[in-house]
C-alpha cells in the first residue's frame, strides 16, 4: 500500500446516480488485485473529513477505474471533480478474492452483484477470464441484480468479456423478477448444482447473508466483499469490524473479502 497524488483522467455519469472515474495511479495499478479498494481523500478540507473507500472497478492500463454511486456529500463532491484534478489516494488495500481455485475443481465461477455491488466484480471477471488455462474452461457466469432496468449496471461490460450474464430486477422490468439471490437459486436448481465451484458476491448486507445460506445449502464455497464505513482503511483504528467465528475482524485489513462461513451474520 502506498499513498499517491492521483490525477483524475475522466469522471463521467453512467446513468442516474452512478458515475465512473479513472485515476492515473501507475505505481498502484501494478499490484492491485480484485476485491481490493482505494482510500480516497475526496477534498482537501474537512468536508468530507475522512477518506472514502472505493472498490477497484477495473484496471485500464495505468489507470484504475472506480464505479460509484452518489449516496452522500462525499460522493456528490467527487462526482463534480473535473479531469486534471488530483486526489490523494492510498492503496491498494485489503485482501481480495481468492482466484487460486484449482481447475481440478469442476464447474464454473458464479459472480453475483447487487446494485453498486457489481463494482469489484468486473475486475474479478477480467482476471478469471484471463486466468483460464484454455478455451475449454468456461468463463464466469455473472448474475446482476438491480432495482429496475434503469438502474442496471455493467451488463455490456460483462458480456464483452465473454461472460454468461443473467439479470434480475426487483420490479421485473428486465430479466428475472425478484432478488438476485432468488435468481441464483433458480440458476443453481436449473443447471446441475455441482457446476458451481465458487460463488463470489458483492452487494447489500442482507443479500450477502442470503448468499451465505445458499452457499451452505448447495455446498458451493462463497466469498463476499463487504462494504463498510471506514475511518483509516489501513487497519489502525479498528473501526470497521465485522463479527466472525474468530472474533471481530477488520473489514479494511482482514477483509474486505471474507468466506461466508467465517462471518456471524
Amino acid at each position: 500500500m502506498i499513498q499517491v497524488k492521483a490525477k483524475l483522467i475522466y469522471n463521467k455519469k453512467i446513468k442516474n446516480n452512478y458515475f465512473c472515474c479513472a485515476l492515473f495511479v501507475e505505481k498502484l495499478a501494478y499490484s492491485a488485485y480484485p476485491g481490493q479498494f482505494l482510500q480516497i481523500k475526496i477534498d482537501n478540507g474537512y468536508t468530507p473529513f475522512l477518506r472514502r473507500p472505493f472498490s477497484i472497478h477495473r484496471l485500464k492500463g495505468k489507470n484504475i477505474e472506480i464505479l460509484y454511486e452518489v449516496v452522500g456529500k462525499g460522493t456528490e463532491i467527487l462526482s463534480k471533480k473535473k479531469p486534471g484534478e488530483y486526489l490523494d489516494v492510498i492503496g491498494p488495500l485489503g485482501n481480495g478474492f481468492n482466484l487460486n481455485i484449482p481447475y481440478s475443481v469442476a464447474g464454473i465461477s458464479i459472480l453475483v452483484g447487487g446494485g453498486i455491488g457489481v463494482a469489484p466484480l468486473l475486475f474479478l471477471a477480467e482476471r478469471l477470464v484471463h486466468n483460464r488455462q484454455s478455451k475449454v474452461h468456461r468463463g464466469p457466469c455473472v448474475l446482476i441484480g438491480a432495482k429496475n432496468k434503469r438502474e442496471l449496471l455493467c451488463e455490456k461490460e460483462f458480456q464483452d468479456l465473454g461472460c454468461e450474464v443473467r439479470i434480475s430486477t426487483d420490479d421485473g422490468s428486465k430479466g428475472f423478477k425478484g432478488k438476485v439471490t432468488d435468481l441464483l437459486k433458480v440458476f443453481l436448481q436449473k443447471t446441475n448444482q455441482r457446476q458451481g465451484r465458487m460463488i463470489y458476491a458483492c452487494g447489500p448486507r442482507p443479500m450477502l447473508k442470503e448468499i451465505a445460506v445458499i452457499s451452505q445449502k448447495y455446498s458451493i464455497p462463497a466469498e463476499v466483499c463487504l462494504e463498510e464505513h471506514m475511518a483509516c482503511g489501513i487497519g489502525v483504528c479498528l473501526g470497521c469490524v465485522v463479527n466472525t467465528k474468530r472474533g471481530y475482524k477488520r473489514v479494511c485489513k482482514d477483509g474486505p473479502v471474507f468466506k461466508t462461513e467465517e462471518i456471524i451474520w
Partner: peptide, 23 residues
Amino acid sequence: QAGNPPPRTCETASGLLNSIGLE
C-alpha cells in the same frame, strides 16, 4: 478485550466519533 459491537465509528462535522471499546 473484544471491543464494542459495530458500527464503531462515524464521521461528524470536522470530526470522528468512535466507540472502539479498547479492543
